[in-house]
Amino acid sequence: MSRFNSKQLVLDASLALGSNDRMFNPVGDAAGERNRKCLDAVWDEGHVAVFNRQLRREWRDHASPFAAGWLQKMTQKSRTLVDEGNDFSPLLQQACDCLPSAGEKADLAKDFHLVQSALATGQLILSNEVRFPRHVTRACVAVPELAQLYYGNPAIEGEDCRLWIKAGADKEPGRRIDNWSANHQP
């Protein structure tokens, strides 16, 4: 396990839920396997998982048995970090103002805790969400700090999130959240 290139990553609870398996959860699919492989890669490469209270609560409520075991082992190895980040509530309002619909505003607000913790740590977010990075990208106009975020989505086939994590989860231009959104248009 390499340690020298360890990164701090915010792992959305969608990975905890998504890393399901057919033994325990019959909705297991290829995306689930990719999620699991990503968690494996985070473990193998000695990366650190960043949490905040809300994210931890979501993990507790949604984690698959595999993800729960993974989190226990990460915690035992002191490879979890709790960082609430700075209070971005004023920025959230500005960011939401950039979005046209109430639904989009609600989507962004729902996951804004990921943004707070990521900006305070390694600026890296892994999530199965597709709309969230688009919302963040649109909000970059009003809140330029958001463009510091880098993104990976293990649920998308061909993303090679696992390889990216194995290679050190570096801040590659293509993974900057605005570029990522541009490359993953609906």
Partner: peptide, 15 residues
């Protein structure tokens, strides 16, 4: 490590 690897290998095989 052994537990995670065994979990993963088992789930890979089942899937």
């Amino acid at each position: 490590d052994v537990e995670l690897k065994s979990d993963s290998q088992y789930l890979d095989a089942v899937e």
